[in-house]
Computed example of a mutant assay.
Amino acid sequence: MPQAPLDDADKRLLRQLQRDARISTQDLADRAGLSASPAWRRVKRMEDAGLIRKHVAMLDPKRLGLSAVAYVHVSLLDHSEPTMARFDDFVQHQDQVVECASITGSDDYLLKVYARDPEDLERFIMRKLLALGIVRSSTTNFVLRQTKYTTELPLD
């Protein structure tokens, strides 16, 4: 869906909101070089247009006991509509899966999965993912160290 072009003021507002969604309207306006009312109206317009989908809190996975992070490449047995719909439904109902993308190449999907430890991840893969009966193969890559993590999108 095409989006109306953003002007520099919109981009300044979005940069600040990506860094801190709880920023006060006045602080947001100050940092974007606007007064409070126009800043609020611009943010409201971008929310109404669906450009800003929601405001969330970023949690620390390790402090929540989720010390294992992995990328799981998944290849399905077939590409029929029922199989893909079943897989998509499965992914939507698994809290451990925080990202799922249909990808090109030899695999069909790439999942980002959080778990308490490697054994917890193995239980997810063996007892849930592979137990579906629609997965041809999966390859798991553990994250050893994360060197960058952001949800900020480039606005240039």
Rank of each mutant, 00 (worst) to 15 (best):
L76I: 12
S24C: 09
H79D: 14
G50F: 09
A32R: 08
P5S: 11
P38M: 03
H93A: 04
A29L: 11
V43C: 08
V74A: 15
E81S: 08
R41E: 13
M84G: 03
K54P: 00
K11W: 01
L76N: 11
A57D: 02
A85W: 01
A57L: 12
R12L: 10
D10L: 02
L64E: 00
K11F: 04
M84H: 13
R63P: 00
R63S: 03
P61E: 04
Q26C: 04
S67E: 12
D7T: 05
V56A: 09
L28E: 07
P61R: 07
D20W: 07
L6A: 01
L28D: 07
D89T: 09
S35L: 09
D78K: 08
R19S: 12
P61W: 02
V74R: 12
S67Q: 05
R41L: 14
S80Q: 12
R19Q: 13
K54W: 01
A70T: 09
E81F: 08
D88S: 12
W40Q: 14
D20M: 07
A68E: 13
S75Y: 07
A4M: 06
R41Q: 15
L17M: 10
D10G: 05
Q96H: 03
R53S: 08
R12A: 15
D89E: 14
V91N: 11
E47V: 15
A39I: 03
S24N: 12
I23F: 05
M58H: 09
Y71H: 15
H55F: 13
Q16R: 12
M84K: 14
D7W: 04
S24Y: 10
A70L: 09
A85L: 10
S75C: 09
R41Y: 14
D10R: 07
D10N: 10
R53G: 05
M46I: 03
G50S: 08
P5W: 01
D10K: 06
P61G: 03
V72G: 10
P5C: 00
F90V: 11
R45F: 03
D7A: 03
A49Y: 08
V43I: 03
H73Y: 15
I52R: 05
A68C: 14
D30K: 15
S37I: 11
D88F: 00
V69Q: 15
R42V: 06
A85Q: 15
S37W: 03
R63A: 06
Q94Y: 01
M58W: 01
M58A: 12
R15G: 00
P82M: 07
V43P: 00
D30V: 15
A68G: 01
A68P: 01
D7F: 03
V91C: 11
I52V: 13
A39S: 11
Q94V: 08
P61K: 02
D48E: 15
F87R: 07
S37L: 13
A9N: 11
S35G: 08
D30P: 01
L6K: 06
L77H: 15
R12V: 00
A70R: 09
Q16W: 00
K62G: 03
R86C: 06
R12S: 11
P61H: 05
A29Y: 07
A4N: 07
S75H: 14
P38Y: 09
